[in-house]
Design a protein around this nucleic acid. Sequence first.
DNA 1: GTGGTCTAGACCACG
DNA 2: GTGGTCTAGACCACC
Lengths: 141, 141, 141, 141
Amino acid sequence: MPLTISILTGSNVPIYRQIVEQVCAAAVSGRLRDDEALPSVRSLAEQLVLNPNTVARAYGELAREGIIESRPGRGMFVSRRRQIYSGAERRRRMEQAVTSLVAEGFLLGYNPAEIVELVEARTREAAASASGKPSNRGGAR
Amino acid sequence: MPLTISILTGSNVPIYRQIVEQVCAAAVSGRLRDDEALPSVRSLAEQLVLNPNTVARAYGELAREGIIESRPGRGMFVSRRRQIYSGAERRRRMEQAVTSLVAEGFLLGYNPAEIVELVEARTREAAASASGKPSNRGGAR
Amino acid sequence: MPLTISILTGSNVPIYRQIVEQVCAAAVSGRLRDDEALPSVRSLAEQLVLNPNTVARAYGELAREGIIESRPGRGMFVSRRRQIYSGAERRRRMEQAVTSLVAEGFLLGYNPAEIVELVEARTREAAASASGKPSNRGGAR
Amino acid sequence: MPLTISILTGSNVPIYRQIVEQVCAAAVSGRLRDDEALPSVRSLAEQLVLNPNTVARAYGELAREGIIESRPGRGMFVSRRRQIYSGAERRRRMEQAVTSLVAEGFLLGYNPAEIVELVEARTREAAASASGKPSNRGGAR
DNA sequence: GTGGTCTAGACCACG
DNA sequence: GTGGTCTAGACCACC
């Protein structure tokens, strides 16, 4: 089964970022194995009906972050050792993201247990979809 | 002790958004009480070394979300909490926030268990600070 | 026929608000269809002889209300209608709008029957234009 | 029974305007009769716990609009003949207000009948509260 | 003094 | 090309 990526066209998160996130999630969760080849820019762009520039940008970002690497003449491959940010920067960014989520959750009236529960469910889903058992959520519009 | 807000310049999250989140967190957690006055646009702008427009934008956003309200000629005040969003909208927004966090977590190389753990810790802290027992974190960053 | 928006300068209702209301009315009545693109910020600003910021603000407001949505790099599009406010909030806002109209009507010397009559006529027109039978009014003001 | 005015401190409509509207509604509906005296600036300010300037401003506005008139040395009185705006200006402002209400109503998901119904109820209420008895039922259609 | 609106112009991210 | 953010500074309404 080929890597499947779904784009939400009406989302506030930019398309290239959606690609980055989904490739990254697949790599982290093992859906994409180390050294595995990614679809070419052209083919992915065609498959998703996107401007090739957009796909190229996503791949560039992933490469800059060390998640994938270019093997000239052969294509893009999942990088064997990927640890992107320094400990401090990594922690700081995550800290910020967590704080932001918790604030939004409280604002919307969710309680701590519900917030944790939702995050848990979401990570489980992501892991599941990465291991080849796609959940029924989040399809392209 | 006056409300302290700390800004990270050069962050991917815009300044006005950082203000919104921090004021919101303070209001939701009880750090700011109902009917309490906020610092004036001008004074906060001066304190944070920002353009008043930026602060005004944050306040405007908060007012539209029903967190604070303008009393003409007198300033901005924390307003009584009310649920302004429909159930569907709340779910939609929370969904998006959770997805965003999980994606960021994966991108930074955290695994599901770690992400959940961090969220759990953060909600516990927030709940503690709301019940009047401030934890030792959460001061200026 | 392109969407025409007419601005009354020197009105008590701010320019950005006039844009919001007219776009909103067009979207709600079906004059603008789902997924239809709006004029770009810059082009509408030029057309109306306004600062782009003013148009941007109107568009931002509409996006926050869920009437339109931004597709990064491509523009603003009419989004599928959804009910973003809770029942209580809807009632609260409608309450306020009705009160405001009635107050204005009295201030202008209209009596109750006249006010009701005007509203009735206006809703009939709006409903007509929504069902594809535009009335002979509603052009430039 | 003295003229009663109620101020909503957390409203977006300025205090002086709330006074203007309520005095005007009382005059239009007959709760205040022609030539009837209004409370003095001082006494009303004291009664409503407001800055006298605010009351003075409201009275000034009402006087400018011809709804009340000053009889030097004796106080403010309801003006006998009050017709403020020219026909065109009056119609234009009302037109604008009605359009605004209908747009908001549709946006919030109300249908024409509901909107009309709400306006009707509101005008009846205003009239009732002004005359001290339930409403002029037969007036409208 | 307060917030609210508008203009002007810069810089960035996205496709 | 698109929108989004920020700065700078003007003017107004409100109390």
